[in-house]
Write a protein that binds this DNA or RNA. Sequence first.
DNA 1: TTAGAAGGCTGAACACTGTTCAGAGATAAT
DNA 2: ATTATCTCTGAACAGTGTTCAGCCTTCTAA
Lengths: 228, 228
Amino acid sequence: MGIRERHDREKQAVRDGILAAARDLFVIEGYAQVSIRKIAERIEYSPAAIYSYFPSKDDIFFALAAEGFTRLDETIQAAAGDPDPLTDLRNSWWAFYQFSKDQREFFHLMFVDRSVPAITAQWQGFDLLQQMLAHVAARIQRAIDAGRLPADLDPQVALHVLWAALTGPAVLGCTCRLAPGEDCDALARDVLTTTIAGLAAGAALTFVPCHPQRPYSTFASPTWSRVP
Amino acid sequence: MGIRERHDREKQAVRDGILAAARDLFVIEGYAQVSIRKIAERIEYSPAAIYSYFPSKDDIFFALAAEGFTRLDETIQAAAGDPDPLTDLRNSWWAFYQFSKDQREFFHLMFVDRSVPAITAQWQGFDLLQQMLAHVAARIQRAIDAGRLPADLDPQVALHVLWAALTGPAVLGCTCRLAPGEDCDALARDVLTTTIAGLAAGAALTFVPCHPQRPYSTFASPTWSRVP
DNA sequence: TTAGAAGGCTGAACACTGTTCAGAGATAAT
DNA sequence: ATTATCTCTGAACAGTGTTCAGCCTTCTAA
């Protein structure tokens, strides 16, 4: 009868407990402060017990990263929806930046950290990431269709440019690379403004993203030193 | 007699040896692979000996970060000099991005890493960083004077926007957040193109940088959700 | 009801990490 | 020759991630 089910439920509960403990330490004290022994102490198990739930410490962080994408998706979903396509775009990316502030450790783990090999290795495999990117690409397409962005702008290219550009101030903020008084929000806002204005200006772009469907290819070497 | 001098020289040589060993491990195997014991083994000293040259491991990385700024400065100096002010600007920031590729570990330590508190704490204190920023600001001013960028553009604001925007693709590249085939160079190029085009378009910017001389202040809350 | 199988959990250990400190050994000054 | 100075070492401490033999509870089968 339901014995197996109860067992599974109990196992799942312990597993969730491990993740919850890790998340608490992680969010409050930061990545570096999360240790197997501290997690074990919180859930009142021995350190070794954790290894029958996760193959390694990295896998715990991998699970947290996956959760991070859910959180980011919710944040962006909540911010999106403005009828004006460009405002909608701004709000979406502003939400992305806000996420880097409000969920600094998650952001760092998802977009910056190099110390969890599995995350970088399987990064493209996070379903929610791909979904989010697809959603934003669709929003960009809407802005193009509405004539607010150039007709010859590839949504995937614009997506990557916006993503990369906004990642900059987010990283500078969460790694404390601005002067004490400098307003990171204002900087992020200006980067967003400038990038959208630049995209609207319609400069020739050379990036060729990996579309899910069509294979990858690059253009020839650039001639970027000649300024338009 | 030069005994004291010889001693000082010998001490300096060992100190340099420590830095050299650390740099080798650091550049080749990455930050995470640098340990006091590995450094000690390379210089054929006991691990404890290192602590009479550097107060802690962090201070070794701090010294390496300072060296990184020298390297970056040389890289940018070598790239700068084009008579056309905008091309000069492009070349400078392209060199910044190239540095993030060619000296990945240095770039990461200088602009991304959070695990060396001293670096983030005293980051603004790196003289070469401030010099470099001042140089680039001067180049931006030249572009403004030449009428290639809006007259009402604050060079310090443009500087920060360019810096932040370019940091994005650099980070995505050096933390492996692009799809395997995607061309990070092309993305960085596009971000650079888009940002300069955006600055040239003359959108209103709100960032107020910490000028070395005048005190810091911020503007009131933004109204960025209204798109220009 | 009892013997056996299965699984979860622990304690101890291993190999690492940064760091400290008493003391050995060499060198320099008196 | 003796003392003082200084550098360097070996050993240790407290921490890390991880592994494994074995215990102990729980469930299954006879």
